[in-house]
Design a protein around this nucleic acid. Structure first.
Lengths: 122, 122
DNA sequence: GTCGTGTTCAACCGATGAGTTGAACAAGGA
DNA sequence: TCCTTGTTCAACTCATCGGTTGAACACGAC
């Protein structure tokens, strides 16, 4: 389930303009029109961007008369950080394990993190 | 500078197949052929995916005879987490500030995180 | 009701992305 | 040397994406 959303979140943030909008929204909610101002693209284009962010769950929209203020849903960030951290940690551990092996081979001699080009486990 | 790379990293990870490969590489280095096995796509397609990951700086390739073992460069993950954390924290702080304002209005009465639909700063 | 404002829908265009197949290229083994 | 293996390059197809314009829709103001 999350896999699809994860794809949408990453894809949404792959666009500089959308990352910019997220940055803007982190500072406070804003309407589509307000978000459009800084950029010299049509309001429709911005509306589309918002839709992408919205589909990714990064942004929610409220109704206020004819305005649709956007609100950043920061919880979705956790989805990414969880994914990233998992593999970062795994790679890190593998790295340290290799490090230990090398230290073992060197019989306790100091060594210089020689970059584990090889798979450590195999 | 980083902005472009950030786009490439996010775009690279927007593909489930490529995320899968990253997961695979977190467990240990692997050749293009090895990486291709689990999927029923051509080796060329996998090679292209590796290129995308490589351009994003997520993967490096070593020469070993005719083989090109891939290695996960975990440091690039930090680029993402830095970006993410910045705005997550910002949103979080804004949220807490609103929370404080509400608490102030309520004269210290307990309240229930009523979801800050409105921009807090304005 | 009519007007003006803010937003979205629909259709289109050009560029990019993921996949294919076929050929080329590099390096080790007979 | 020739053959096999592993990888990449090149050219093509098809779908998606970011942008446009023009029209529609929703709502408040008059």
């Amino acid at each position: 389930m999350t896999d699809d959303q994860l794809s949408r979140v990453f894809a949404a943030l792959a666009e500089p303009t959308r990352r910019d909008m997220v940055a803007r929204l982190a500072a406070g909610d804003a309407t589509v029109g307000e978000l459009a101002e800084p950029y010299d693209v049509s309001v429709q284009a911005v509306s589309k961007h918002i839709k992408v962010l919205s589909d990714a769950g990064l942004v929610s929209q409220r109704k206020d008369a004819q305005r649709r203020p956007c609100h950043l849903e920061a919880e979705v960030f956790d989805l990414m950080t969880t994914w990233i951290e998992r593999y970062r940690r795994q790679a890190q551990e593998r790295y340290e394990r290799l490090d230990a092996v090398l230290a073992d081979l060197a019989e306790g001699g100091p060594h210089e993190h020689p970059r584990p080009q090889q798979g450590a486990a195999s």
